[in-house]
């Protein structure tokens, strides 16, 4: 079972073209041994959820710098739930005011990362969370 690799979808919802952060995080997660799929730019919530379903990912990470996070993040969450992907670990980052982060973290997002976050800490966070989930799954099985 040690062969099982964490599958992550890094996604850019909406019209925002800023992808420096998304690509950096995608590369770092790959360096940490994860399978990373990057959606490319300008994706709708439905498109993102569809890719998440097809790629059978464990984690969806959204990156946004357009200010539209309060609209788009919950919609991505809903599209995932609609496809039965409630168990996917949802994280995100970008230019998001602290108050909004708190709201989103109460609303299905496990964690949001702001500017200046150490990228290794993102990888470590995902590894820890997914290990917990996998351990729970195994215990149930």
């Amino acid at each position: 079972m040690s062969e099982r690799r964490i599958r992550v979808l890094v996604a850019k919802p909406g019209l925002d073209g800023h992808d420096r952060g998304a690509k950096t995080v995608a590369s770092v997660l790959r360096d940490h041994g994860m399978e990373v799929i990057y959606t490319g730019l300008h994706k709708t919530p439905a498109m993102i959820a569809e890719i998440a379903l097809q790629e059978d990912v464990d984690v969806v990470g959204l990156s946004i710098l357009s200010g539209a996070h309060m609209e788009l993040f919950p919609r991505v969450r809903q599209e995932l739930v609609d496809r039965g992907l409630d168990n996917v670990l949802m994280v995100g980052g970008g230019i998001i005011p602290g108050d909004d982060m708190q709201v989103l973290e109460k609303d299905g997002f496990a964690k949001l990362f702001g500017p200046g976050t150490n990228t290794d800490s993102i990888a470590e966070y995902i590894q820890t969370e997914i290990s917990k989930r996998w351990a729970a799954e195994e215990a149930q099985a």
Partner: peptide, 10 residues
């Protein structure tokens, strides 16, 4: 439809 939530934001 692509623009929901983005009008006037940035």
């Amino acid at each position: 439809e692509m623009c929901r939530g983005e009008v006037g934001q940035v």
